[in-house]
């Protein structure tokens, strides 16, 4: 087990190094941020000073060497935009996104598993048909459209919920609801399919012959077996939100890492972009590890 985690960590570290190199040089290709930060009428002297201060005058390879050396001391550099350590900016945004992802995915998982399992128990029944219909709509709905329509209806017309920002629990309702729809539709379909297979299996036949009641047949015998493919999709969807629910965060003015990354790229705030990429890469690595561990926990045949 320890060996497995170690191997995974090394493999992930290698890809992270590649990613950092790639992003460092690619982002420098977008040009010099000086003009974005200084007023149009700034003097040449001021411009030179800004470049000197931020090290943009040195050759790229020297800039990269300095960046790596700083990184070794866990210094991710300064955010030009906010004039404070880039890592602080990123962690602040990440904590918002992490909360958003955790709340959304918890709701999605519970709802999809319960509804999908019940639909699978009576395939072709009324309940099954209704859930299939709505889950297909959910899985294929464009989130930017839903987000805007939801704002128009619930915030602008009905005045029930705030349009954007954070502050009260009400501010969370629309972003969570919009982010919920697509993963819910998708995971519901996977749960349903996987549970249909599990519930038609030979061990469920044995359970029926033992006289086991319907509910434990579904949620004890079927579900634990049916969860294996579901976990992969849950992890994938959660990673999608963690990586930045860019559209939803932007529309709702939600200060998460997705919005932060877009803003930093537009403003060429290189240190923040790089720190954000490293933090989300680490989050996704941990996430994948958790999925693998969940696999082993659910299925005794899987051992690392």
């Amino acid at each position: 087990m320890k060996q497995f985690i170690g191997k995974r960590a090394i493999a992930s570290a290698v890809s992270l190094v590649g990613l950092v190199i790639l992003v460092f040089f690619l982002s420098r290709l977008t040009g010099d941020p000086t003009d974005l930060y200084l007023p149009i009428d700034a003097s040449q002297e001021m411009r030179d000073q800004f470049r000197e201060l931020n090290g943009f005058n040195d050759p790229l390879i020297v800039q990269f060497g300095r960046y790596v050396a700083d990184l070794a001391r866990l210094d991710f550099g300064q955010s030009i935009r906010e004039a404070r350590p880039a890592i602080d900016v990123v962690l602040q945004g990440f904590s918002w996104t992490l909360s958003l992802a955790a709340i959304t995915m918890t709701l999605v998982t519970i709802a999809a598993i319960v509804i999908g399992s019940l639909a699978a128990f009576n395939v072709g029944g009324v309940f099954d048909r209704i859930t299939t219909f709505f889950s297909l709509i959910g899985a294929s709905a464009p989130d930017f459209w839903i987000a805007i329509v939801a704002i128009v209806i619930f915030a602008v017309n009905l005045h029930w919920l705030p349009t954007s920002g954070t502050g009260t629990p009400w501010h969370w309702v629309l972003p969570v609801a919009v982010l919920f729809i697509r993963p819910f539709g998708l995971i519901l379909q996977v749960v349903r399919g996987s549970m249909i297979t599990a519930l038609s299996s030979a061990y469920v036949k044995t359970a029926k012959a033992k006289g086991v009641r319907s509910r434990p047949i579904i949620f004890v015998h079927g579900l634990r077996n049916g969860m294996l493919p579901v976990i992969t999709v849950i992890g994938d969807q959660a990673a999608g939100i963690l990586n930045g629910a860019v559209v939803v965060e932007t529309i709702f003015g939600f200060p998460g890492i997705g919005k932060l990354m877009i803003d930093s790229i537009l403003q060429r705030d290189f240190a923040v972009v790089l720190a954000a990429i490293m933090v989300s890469a680490l989050a996704i690595f941990i996430m994948n590890l958790l999925i693998d561990l969940a696999y082993a926990l659910l299925d005794p045949r899987i051992r690392y």
């Binding site: 299996s201 061990y203 012959a209």
Partner: peptide, 22 residues
């Protein structure tokens, strides 16, 4: 359901598939 397992029990071919793996 109350008869199954208590008064009449059943075993099958291929016990690996008929036992819950987890």
């Amino acid at each position: 359901r109350q008869i199954n397992g208590k008064r009449i029990a059943m075993i099958f071919q291929d016990p690996l598939a008929h036992l819950n793996p987890v």
